[in-house]
Protein backbone atom coordinates (compact mmCIF):
# COMPACT_ATOMS: atom_id res chain seq x y z
CA UNK A 1 0.00 0.00 0.00
CA UNK A 2 1.12 3.53 -0.73
CA UNK A 3 2.12 5.21 2.50
CA UNK A 4 3.34 8.42 0.92
CA UNK A 5 2.08 11.50 2.63
CA UNK A 6 1.24 14.69 0.82
CA UNK A 7 3.32 17.72 1.63
CA UNK A 8 0.33 19.93 2.14
CA UNK A 9 -2.64 20.37 4.41
CA UNK A 10 -5.27 19.70 1.80
CA UNK A 11 -6.66 16.78 3.77
CA UNK A 12 -7.09 18.94 6.86
CA UNK A 13 -8.42 21.93 4.96
CA UNK A 14 -11.12 19.87 3.30
CA UNK A 15 -11.86 17.80 6.40
CA UNK A 16 -15.52 17.68 7.35
CA UNK A 17 -15.04 15.96 10.70
CA UNK A 18 -12.58 18.10 12.58
CA UNK A 19 -14.08 20.31 15.28
CA UNK A 20 -10.94 21.43 17.08
CA UNK A 21 -7.69 22.37 15.42
CA UNK A 22 -4.77 23.59 17.47
CA UNK A 23 -1.91 25.45 15.89
CA UNK A 24 1.12 25.79 18.08
CA UNK A 25 4.85 25.78 18.44
CA UNK A 26 7.76 27.74 19.73
CA UNK A 27 7.54 31.52 19.92
CA UNK A 28 8.15 33.52 16.77
CA UNK A 29 7.90 30.68 14.25
CA UNK A 30 4.70 31.91 12.57
CA UNK A 31 1.88 30.34 14.59
CA UNK A 32 -0.50 33.24 14.11
CA UNK A 33 0.18 33.45 10.37
CA UNK A 34 -0.28 29.70 10.06
CA UNK A 35 -3.47 29.61 12.12
CA UNK A 36 -4.93 32.51 10.14
CA UNK A 37 -3.92 30.79 6.92
CA UNK A 38 -5.49 27.48 7.88
CA UNK A 39 -8.70 29.26 8.93
CA UNK A 40 -8.92 31.20 5.69
CA UNK A 41 -8.31 28.16 3.54
CA UNK A 42 -10.86 26.10 5.41
CA UNK A 43 -13.40 28.90 5.14
CA UNK A 44 -12.77 29.22 1.41
CA UNK A 45 -12.86 25.46 0.82
CA UNK A 46 -16.08 24.94 2.79
CA UNK A 47 -18.21 28.07 2.31
CA UNK A 48 -21.32 26.53 3.83
CA UNK A 49 -19.67 26.00 7.19
CA UNK A 50 -18.79 28.42 9.95
CA UNK A 51 -15.29 28.66 11.36
CA UNK A 52 -14.02 30.37 14.46
CA UNK A 53 -10.42 31.35 15.09
CA UNK A 54 -9.61 31.87 18.76
CA UNK A 55 -6.39 33.25 20.07
CA UNK A 56 -5.43 31.84 23.45
CA UNK A 57 -2.11 33.65 23.51
CA UNK A 58 -2.22 36.45 26.08
CA UNK A 59 -0.07 38.43 23.65
CA UNK A 60 -2.75 38.47 21.01
CA UNK A 61 -1.82 38.94 17.36
CA UNK A 62 -4.99 38.17 15.47
CA UNK A 63 -6.04 41.77 15.25
CA UNK A 64 -2.61 42.68 13.87
CA UNK A 65 -2.64 39.74 11.46
CA UNK A 66 -5.98 40.67 9.92
CA UNK A 67 -5.55 44.41 10.33
CA UNK A 68 -8.77 44.84 12.26
CA UNK A 69 -9.73 44.80 15.89
CA UNK A 70 -11.17 41.68 17.46
CA UNK A 71 -12.37 41.31 21.02
CA UNK A 72 -13.69 38.79 23.45
CA UNK A 73 -16.87 38.36 21.45
CA UNK A 74 -16.57 36.52 18.16
CA UNK A 75 -16.79 38.81 15.15
CA UNK A 76 -16.72 38.03 11.46
CA UNK A 77 -13.60 38.88 9.54
CA UNK A 78 -14.25 41.69 7.10
CA UNK A 79 -14.51 40.12 3.67
CA UNK A 80 -15.25 36.61 4.93
CA UNK A 81 -18.82 35.44 5.59
CA UNK A 82 -17.95 32.28 7.38
CA UNK A 83 -14.86 33.07 9.39
CA UNK A 84 -14.99 34.77 12.79
CA UNK A 85 -12.22 35.69 15.16
CA UNK A 86 -12.02 36.09 18.89
CA UNK A 87 -9.27 37.14 21.25
CA UNK A 88 -9.73 35.88 24.77
CA UNK A 89 -8.62 38.62 27.08
CA UNK A 90 -8.03 37.15 30.53
CA UNK A 91 -7.80 40.56 32.21
CA UNK A 92 -11.13 41.68 30.74
CA UNK A 93 -12.77 38.39 31.71
CA UNK A 94 -11.45 38.74 35.22
CA UNK A 95 -12.66 42.33 35.38
CA UNK A 96 -16.14 41.14 34.34
CA UNK A 97 -16.05 38.59 37.14
CA UNK A 98 -14.95 41.30 39.55
CA UNK A 99 -17.80 43.59 38.46
CA UNK A 100 -20.29 40.76 38.86
CA UNK A 101 -19.00 40.09 42.36
CA UNK A 102 -19.33 43.79 43.21
CA UNK A 103 -22.92 43.79 42.00
CA UNK A 104 -23.78 40.69 44.00
CA UNK A 105 -22.15 41.96 47.17
CA UNK A 106 -23.77 45.37 47.06
CA UNK A 107 -24.97 45.06 50.64
CA UNK A 108 -21.59 44.15 51.99
CA UNK A 109 -19.76 47.44 52.16
CA UNK A 110 -16.43 46.12 53.21
CA UNK A 111 -16.24 43.47 50.58
CA UNK A 112 -17.79 45.71 47.96
CA UNK A 113 -15.13 48.36 48.53
CA UNK A 114 -12.43 45.77 48.24
CA UNK A 115 -13.83 44.37 45.02
CA UNK A 116 -14.44 47.76 43.44
CA UNK A 117 -10.74 48.29 43.51
CA UNK A 118 -10.45 45.28 41.22
CA UNK A 119 -9.07 43.13 43.98
CA UNK A 120 -10.63 39.95 42.65
CA UNK A 121 -9.18 40.54 39.21
CA UNK A 122 -5.77 41.35 40.66
CA UNK A 123 -5.71 38.30 42.84
CA UNK A 124 -6.94 35.82 40.26
CA UNK A 125 -5.07 37.39 37.39
CA UNK A 126 -1.75 36.55 38.92
CA UNK A 127 -2.53 32.88 39.33
CA UNK A 128 -0.30 30.87 36.99
CA UNK A 129 -2.35 29.15 34.35
CA UNK A 130 -5.30 31.53 34.62
CA UNK A 131 -5.01 32.37 30.92
CA UNK A 132 -5.27 28.74 30.00
CA UNK A 133 -8.15 28.24 32.40
CA UNK A 134 -10.10 31.11 30.87
CA UNK A 135 -9.44 29.81 27.38
CA UNK A 136 -10.64 26.44 28.47
CA UNK A 137 -13.78 28.00 29.86
CA UNK A 138 -14.44 29.48 26.45
CA UNK A 139 -14.14 26.05 24.91
CA UNK A 140 -16.64 24.68 27.38
CA UNK A 141 -18.98 27.57 26.74
CA UNK A 142 -18.92 26.77 23.04
CA UNK A 143 -19.67 23.14 23.61
CA UNK A 144 -22.55 24.06 25.88
CA UNK A 145 -23.93 26.58 23.38
CA UNK A 146 -23.73 24.10 20.57
CA UNK A 147 -25.57 21.48 22.58
CA UNK A 148 -28.23 23.93 23.61
CA UNK A 149 -28.47 25.46 20.16
CA UNK A 150 -27.75 28.93 21.45
CA UNK A 151 -25.86 31.63 19.66
CA UNK A 152 -23.69 31.22 16.63
CA UNK A 153 -22.79 27.65 15.87
CA UNK A 154 -19.33 26.94 14.58
CA UNK A 155 -18.41 23.77 12.76
CA UNK A 156 -14.71 24.06 13.45
CA UNK A 157 -12.74 26.04 16.00
CA UNK A 158 -9.12 26.82 15.28
CA UNK A 159 -6.89 27.80 18.17
CA UNK A 160 -3.95 30.12 17.75
CA UNK A 161 -2.16 28.97 20.83
CA UNK A 162 0.37 30.50 23.09
CA UNK A 163 3.97 29.32 23.04
CA UNK A 164 4.52 25.67 23.83
CA UNK A 165 4.48 25.62 27.64
CA UNK A 166 1.21 27.47 27.95
CA UNK A 167 -0.45 25.25 25.41
CA UNK A 168 0.63 22.08 27.14
CA UNK A 169 -0.82 23.42 30.39
CA UNK A 170 -4.04 24.18 28.56
CA UNK A 171 -4.22 20.68 27.17
CA UNK A 172 -3.58 19.19 30.60
CA UNK A 173 -6.59 21.02 32.02
CA UNK A 174 -9.24 18.41 31.19
CA UNK A 175 -7.28 15.70 32.99
CA UNK A 176 -6.48 18.00 35.94
CA UNK A 177 -10.03 19.26 36.24
CA UNK A 178 -11.41 15.76 36.02
CA UNK A 179 -9.25 14.64 38.93
CA UNK A 180 -10.11 17.74 40.95
CA UNK A 181 -13.81 17.32 40.35
CA UNK A 182 -13.63 13.71 41.46
CA UNK A 183 -12.15 14.85 44.74
CA UNK A 184 -14.62 17.69 45.16
CA UNK A 185 -17.39 15.22 44.44
CA UNK A 186 -16.28 13.09 47.35
CA UNK A 187 -16.12 16.06 49.69
CA UNK A 188 -19.37 17.64 48.55
CA UNK A 189 -21.11 14.31 48.88
CA UNK A 190 -20.25 14.38 52.56
CA UNK A 191 -20.76 18.04 53.27
CA UNK A 192 -22.96 19.20 50.40
CA UNK A 193 -26.28 19.28 52.26
CA UNK A 194 -24.68 21.11 55.15
CA UNK A 195 -23.01 23.59 52.82
CA UNK A 196 -26.28 24.09 50.99
CA UNK A 197 -28.01 24.93 54.27
CA UNK A 198 -25.30 27.43 55.10
CA UNK A 199 -25.64 29.12 51.73
CA UNK A 200 -29.38 28.92 51.66
CA UNK A 201 -31.88 31.65 50.93
CA UNK A 202 -31.54 33.40 47.60
CA UNK A 203 -28.19 31.77 46.89
CA UNK A 204 -29.36 28.21 47.07
CA UNK A 205 -26.38 26.54 45.49
CA UNK A 206 -26.79 23.06 44.21
CA UNK A 207 -23.15 22.21 44.53
CA UNK A 208 -23.45 18.67 43.39
CA UNK A 209 -25.54 19.61 40.37
CA UNK A 210 -23.10 22.24 39.17
CA UNK A 211 -20.12 19.99 39.71
CA UNK A 212 -21.72 17.14 37.86
CA UNK A 213 -22.50 19.44 34.96
CA UNK A 214 -18.94 20.72 34.92
CA UNK A 215 -17.51 17.23 35.16
CA UNK A 216 -19.72 16.05 32.35
CA UNK A 217 -18.52 18.89 30.12
CA UNK A 218 -14.91 18.25 30.99
CA UNK A 219 -15.26 14.55 30.18
CA UNK A 220 -16.79 15.45 26.83
CA UNK A 221 -13.88 17.70 26.05
CA UNK A 222 -11.40 15.02 27.05
CA UNK A 223 -13.05 12.56 24.73
CA UNK A 224 -13.21 15.02 21.87
CA UNK A 225 -9.60 16.10 22.28
CA UNK A 226 -8.38 12.54 22.07
CA UNK A 227 -10.48 11.64 19.02
CA UNK A 228 -8.23 12.02 15.95
CA UNK A 229 -11.20 12.61 13.68
CA UNK A 230 -12.33 15.55 15.80
CA UNK A 231 -9.14 17.12 17.05
CA UNK A 232 -5.69 17.58 15.63
CA UNK A 233 -2.65 19.64 16.44
CA UNK A 234 -0.65 21.38 13.72
CA UNK A 235 2.92 22.05 14.77
CA UNK A 236 4.64 25.10 13.38
CA UNK A 237 8.39 25.35 13.40
CA UNK A 238 11.36 26.77 11.58
CA UNK A 239 14.27 24.85 10.22
CA UNK A 240 16.68 25.41 13.09
CA UNK A 241 18.06 23.20 15.80
CA UNK A 242 16.18 24.51 18.83
CA UNK A 243 12.91 24.72 16.96
CA UNK A 244 13.31 21.16 15.72
CA UNK A 245 14.09 19.93 19.23
CA UNK A 246 11.15 21.73 20.75
CA UNK A 247 8.84 20.52 18.01
CA UNK A 248 9.86 16.94 18.71
CA UNK A 249 9.26 17.38 22.42
CA UNK A 250 5.93 19.05 21.74
CA UNK A 251 4.83 16.18 19.52
CA UNK A 252 5.86 13.66 22.13
CA UNK A 253 3.97 15.52 24.87
CA UNK A 254 0.90 15.72 22.69
CA UNK A 255 1.06 12.01 21.96
CA UNK A 256 1.26 11.32 25.67
CA UNK A 257 -2.02 13.25 26.01
CA UNK A 258 -3.51 11.09 23.21
CA UNK A 259 -3.82 14.08 20.94
CA UNK A 260 -3.46 13.51 17.23
CA UNK A 261 -0.52 15.21 15.52
CA UNK A 262 0.02 14.59 11.84
CA UNK A 263 0.94 17.93 10.29
CA UNK A 264 4.00 20.13 10.55
CA UNK A 265 4.47 23.51 8.94
CA UNK A 266 8.08 24.54 8.42
CA UNK A 267 8.16 28.28 8.03
CA UNK A 268 10.58 30.96 6.98
CA UNK A 269 12.52 28.86 4.49
CA UNK A 270 14.77 30.75 2.17
CA UNK A 271 14.96 28.42 -0.84
CA UNK A 272 18.00 30.41 -1.82
CA UNK A 273 19.21 28.01 -4.52
CA UNK A 274 16.00 28.57 -6.42
CA UNK A 275 16.25 32.34 -6.23
CA UNK A 276 19.23 33.25 -8.33
CA UNK A 277 18.16 36.89 -8.51
CA UNK A 278 18.15 37.49 -4.77
CA UNK A 279 20.86 35.31 -3.45
CA UNK A 280 23.32 36.91 -1.11
CA UNK A 281 26.02 35.11 0.76
CA UNK A 282 24.10 35.32 3.97
CA UNK A 283 21.02 33.76 2.42
CA UNK A 284 23.12 31.01 0.91
CA UNK A 285 24.75 30.22 4.22
CA UNK A 286 21.48 30.31 6.05
CA UNK A 287 19.74 28.18 3.47
CA UNK A 288 22.46 25.58 3.80
CA UNK A 289 21.80 25.42 7.51
CA UNK A 290 18.08 25.19 6.92
CA UNK A 291 18.50 22.40 4.44
CA UNK A 292 20.42 20.33 6.93
CA UNK A 293 17.56 20.45 9.41
CA UNK A 294 14.98 20.14 6.68
CA UNK A 295 16.49 16.83 5.66
CA UNK A 296 16.33 15.70 9.24
CA UNK A 297 12.71 16.82 9.45
CA UNK A 298 11.88 14.80 6.37
CA UNK A 299 13.55 11.78 7.91
CA UNK A 300 12.02 12.09 11.35
CA UNK A 301 8.54 12.97 10.13
CA UNK A 302 8.10 10.82 7.07
CA UNK A 303 4.61 9.86 8.25
CA UNK A 304 3.58 13.45 8.81
CA UNK A 305 2.28 16.08 6.42
CA UNK A 306 5.30 18.36 6.27
CA UNK A 307 4.52 21.65 4.57
CA UNK A 308 7.39 23.92 3.66
CA UNK A 309 6.61 27.62 3.47
CA UNK A 310 8.81 30.46 2.29
CA UNK A 311 10.15 33.47 4.07
CA UNK A 312 8.49 36.40 2.35
CA UNK A 313 9.98 39.77 1.66
CA UNK A 314 7.22 41.58 3.48
CA UNK A 315 4.92 41.02 6.43
CA UNK A 316 2.02 38.67 5.93
CA UNK A 317 -0.67 40.93 7.30
CA UNK A 318 -4.15 41.71 6.09
CA UNK A 319 -6.70 39.41 4.52
CA UNK A 320 -5.38 39.73 0.96
CA UNK A 321 -1.82 38.86 1.87
CA UNK A 322 -2.98 36.01 4.03
CA UNK A 323 -5.07 34.63 1.19
CA UNK A 324 -2.11 34.72 -1.17
CA UNK A 325 0.19 33.11 1.31
CA UNK A 326 -2.25 30.56 2.68
CA UNK A 327 -3.08 28.87 -0.58
CA UNK A 328 0.29 27.11 -0.42
CA UNK A 329 -0.87 25.27 2.63
CA UNK A 330 -3.46 23.66 0.41
CA UNK A 331 -1.44 23.07 -2.73
CA UNK A 332 2.11 23.03 -1.39
CA UNK A 333 4.81 25.56 -2.21
CA UNK A 334 7.00 25.01 -5.23
CA UNK A 335 9.97 27.37 -4.92
CA UNK A 336 10.52 27.31 -8.66
CA UNK A 337 6.97 28.19 -9.70
CA UNK A 338 5.59 30.12 -6.80
CA UNK A 339 8.50 32.29 -5.69
CA UNK A 340 6.91 35.43 -7.12
CA UNK A 341 4.54 35.57 -4.18
CA UNK A 342 7.47 36.40 -1.95
CA UNK A 343 7.67 39.84 -3.46
CA UNK A 344 4.00 40.35 -4.25
CA UNK A 345 2.67 40.98 -0.80
CA UNK A 346 0.99 44.32 -0.44
CA UNK A 347 2.45 46.65 2.05
CA UNK A 348 0.14 47.13 5.02
CA UNK A 349 -0.15 50.61 6.43
Amino acid sequence: MDYSVESNLHELITSTTHKWIFVGGKGGVGKTTSSCSISIQMALAQPTKQFLLISTDPAHNLSDAFGEKFGKEARKVTGMNNLSCMEIDPSAALKDMNDMAVAQNGGNEGLGDLLQGGALADITGSIPGIDEALSFMEVMKHIKRQEEGEGEKYDTVIFDTAPTGHTLRFLQLPQTLSQLLDKFGEIAGKFGPMLNSFTGGSQNMDIMGKMNELKSNVEKIKQQFSDPDLTTFVCVCISEFLSLYETERLIQELMSYDMDVNSIIVNQLLFAEDDSEHNCRRCQSRWKMQKKYLDQIDELYEDFHVVTMPLCAGEIRGLNNLKKFSKFLDTGYDPKKDNKVIYELEEQK
Partner: peptide, 18 residues
Protein backbone atom coordinates in the same frame (compact mmCIF):
# COMPACT_ATOMS: atom_id res chain seq x y z
CA UNK B 1 -4.66 5.01 5.27
CA UNK B 2 -4.99 7.65 7.96
CA UNK B 3 -5.44 4.98 10.57
CA UNK B 4 -2.41 3.06 9.41
CA UNK B 5 -0.27 6.16 9.29
CA UNK B 6 -1.36 6.99 12.82
CA UNK B 7 -0.35 3.55 14.01
CA UNK B 8 3.01 3.88 12.30
CA UNK B 9 3.61 7.20 14.00
CA UNK B 10 2.70 5.75 17.39
CA UNK B 11 4.97 2.78 16.82
CA UNK B 12 7.91 5.00 16.01
CA UNK B 13 7.39 7.00 19.18
CA UNK B 14 6.77 4.03 21.43
CA UNK B 15 9.08 1.56 23.18
CA UNK B 16 12.02 3.90 23.66
CA UNK B 17 11.77 5.31 20.18
CA UNK B 18 10.89 8.75 21.50
Amino acid sequence: KRRLLRERRQQKFGKGGA
